[in-house]
């Protein structure tokens, strides 16, 4: 206890070294590093998917060649085989990666930013703002999230953009609670009170003193959020409420191929492997960061 108190006197400097320490511990954590490298590689590949398919592979992911349907992997020049109307699965998976991970990333980022801003505002100002926000948050939280997803999907069209907006609009309450609580407790800390007493304006206090302390929490939420959204995207596709073709996503590719599991098992194996591995990696990274920032685990 006493050690922590001392720390808070020089919070900025200490927290920086804490971050550095955490980074160093992540660097040493082999599992987390492998997961991180996998995710980063996949992201880069997904980002350049159009370039890779157009220029390097020279295939159009949406162009059917019906004669080649259900071609198994490594035949007729299809590295991962062809789908039910003879589209190149590798090319489609590459494009799908961008969409599925994009939905995960931007959806989580949107809900995190909403949660972060509202949570900090609510925790910092308290009073009426806080009461009203709490009412809204409790209301949204009271509707089972899948119900909300279905409800909102019936309002918006089925596209990647509307899916991002949907999850952004309903996914922020968890972050909000977390951030609000943290802000509350940080607000009571001496250095913030000191800053207030010195006449610093609220924005400065929030950005300079409160925000940096929330980084690790936020990054962990981001990782878990992306993992959750990748799974949610595939579930919505199964229910017929996800992103519609010709736009490929991991979820709609997997959903569609399940009926062909006897004709083209490769059409199920690769999407499901990709989904599970990616989700797993995000979980591992989230865990790794949590461990790294957890002072009780530091030796």
């Amino acid at each position: 206890m006493t050690r922590l108190k001392k720390k808070s006197l020089h919070q900025d400097i200490v927290s920086e070294s804490l971050t550095r320490k955490a980074l160093r511990s992540i660097w040493r954590d082999k599992l987390t590093m492998i997961a991180l490298i996998f995710v980063l590689t996949l992201s880069v590949v997904a980002l350049f998917a159009p370039f890779i398919t157009d220029t390097i592979m020279r295939v159009d992911p949406n162009e059917p060649t019906t004669a080649d349907k259900f071609t198994p992997p490594l035949q007729k020049g299809y590295a991962l085989g062809a789908d039910d109307i003879g589209r190149d699965q590798l090319a489609r998976l590459l494009h799908a990666s961008g969409v599925s991970m994009g939905i995960g990333f931007f959806g989580t980022a949107l809900s995190l930013s909403i949660g972060l801003v509202l949570g900090m505002a609510s925790g910092y100002f308290g009073g009426g703002v806080d009461d009203f926000m709490n009412w809204i948050v409790t209301t949204i939280d009271s509707i089972p999230s899948l119900f909300l997803l279905i409800l909102i999907s019936s309002v918006l069209s089925y596209s990647a953009e509307s899916l991002i907006i949907t999850v952004g609009l309903i996914g922020w309450t968890g972050t909000y609670r977390l951030i609000r609580g943290q802000t509350f407790s940080l607000r009571a800390k001496e250095y913030v009170i000191a800053a207030q007493a010195l006449g610093a304006n609220p924005r400065r206090i929030i950005f300079q003193h409160i925000l940096p302390n929330l980084i690790s929490v936020t990054v962990i939420s981001l990782m878990l959020g992306i993992a959750g959204l990748i799974l949610a995207e595939s579930a919505l596709s199964y229910l017929g409420l996800g992103v519609q073709p010709p736009q490929a996503t991991w979820g709609n590719m997997l959903t569609k191929s399940i009926q062909f599991f006897r004709l083209g098992p490769h059409l199920i194996i690769f999407p499901i492997l990709l989904i599970s591995t990616t989700v797993l990696c995000f979980y591992i990274i989230g865990d790794g960061i949590r461990d790294a920032f957890d002072p009780t685990l530091q030796k």
């Binding site: 799974l231 989904i275 989700v279």
Partner: peptide
């Protein structure tokens, strides 16, 4: 636990059925 949680629910269900 983490691996089971990484597979989409419907995929897991159909896999178990098969």
């Amino acid at each position: 636990a983490v691996i089971v949680n990484s597979v989409p629910n419907f995929g897991l269900g159909l896999l178990l059925i098969l």
